[in-house]
Simulated assay, not measured.
Amino acid sequence: MSTHAAVVTIGPGLPLEIHQVKTPKAIGNQVKLRTEWTASTPLDLHQADGGLLVKSPQVLGDGFGGTVVEIGPEVSRLEVGDVVFGFGWRSQEEKAHQEYVVTNEYLLAKLPTGFSLQEAVTLPNNFVTAWHTLTKEAGLNLPWPKPENHKPQTRDQWILVWGGSSSVGQYILQVLKYYGYKNVVATASKAHHERLRTYGAKECFDYRNGDVSDEVQKFISLQSNGNGHISFIVDCIGSRTSSISPISKIAKPGTDVAIMLPVIVKDAAVGIKPELSMDVDEGVSWADGVERRGVRTHFYLDNQFLADKLQPEIMPSLLEKGVIKPNDQLIVEGDTLLERAEKALSKLRNKEVSGARLVWRIAAAQN
């Protein structure tokens, strides 16, 4: 069996390394692709600096784009030469930061005409997270295909997206707009407010304002003649101090709250290991009757319909139709794979990007 280069973490806070790992063959309904582009996520930092759910040495990354080079005998939709993108996480072979990825056909989408892989890799992990959160955690009905003149019964309920300019937040707003939800508000820095309004936010609030919780409640009360109630809050940040704590002041009995895991207790910094938790209640006081849950996107395959449709069909269809737009990209340059990986991790650690995704090349496309 041949080998290929992979970016691995060998221990919390230690420098990344390039290891030669085995290149498996595609079997059954598996597809092998040569990975060309990836987009870094906070999970990469949680695993590299915090050792979250890691058994070292572990290949990093979960969003990839590349060209199909081999298919298993049960593959029916994809062919060698197809340009694809997707989200995988279940095994070392599926991880993104390596020259070859081997995964199941249902975790891959064909790249629609008119889009680049650099754009496409900003979607899969966070689009899947957005859809999973809205359907499972919020219990919203997002029928696919969307019927003509679709009007959800709950379209007038108030929804708060905390961290609307995050990748997940942007996709949540766009999906809610497509399905007809009107009373959606979001928090983000002021630089992103105009864009988020085009994505469907009725109003935006600067999360850095000390009284942002009061501002949100006042706005909804005025819009609802004093009868406003937030039905669902999604926390796309998952920080105990900067998001969960102010959200706990807004959530009232009957509000459902979904929080992206892990909870960040202490941020990573140069020479400092982050503190992470999987408990959304620890260190926070909630009003009685507030339902709160941690979002675990990796379980979306438990829903057979989404396993079959979400990445192969729904994701590329909405991209092609312009319903969802790729996140802005900040291209991470570097002479070597290791240099690009380390630079991306450093930018995450130092919080050098806002409202965009760190995108970088794994391997050059082959002719």
Rank of each mutant, 00 (worst) to 15 (best):
G28V: 05
K136R: 14
E333Q: 14
K321Y: 06
S354E: 09
Y300P: 07
I264E: 01
L196R: 03
D206F: 00
T255M: 05
D206H: 00
S346E: 10
F115W: 11
V290R: 00
S231M: 08
K182N: 13
Q30A: 05
Q311H: 03
G114S: 08
P262M: 04
P24Q: 06
V161K: 00
N104F: 13
C204I: 10
I27N: 13
V69K: 06
V263I: 09
V212F: 01
G66V: 04
E194C: 06
N141C: 14
E282S: 12
G66T: 07
R296W: 12
V185L: 00
L16E: 06
P143E: 05
Y207M: 06
P312Q: 09
Q366D: 14
K55V: 11
T133L: 01
T255K: 05
L348H: 05
Y181A: 05
N149E: 10
H97S: 07
L107P: 00
W158K: 07
Y207L: 06
I18H: 01
R357F: 03
S221D: 15
V270T: 15
R77V: 09
G283V: 04
P145S: 01
Q47D: 07
G86A: 10
M260S: 15
V265H: 04
Q20A: 14
S2H: 10
D44I: 04
I250N: 00
L60H: 04
W286I: 11
L78C: 06
I159W: 00
L45R: 02
I27F: 07
T154V: 12
P326R: 02
K309M: 15
I244V: 15
G66W: 02
R240P: 08
L16W: 02
K22W: 04
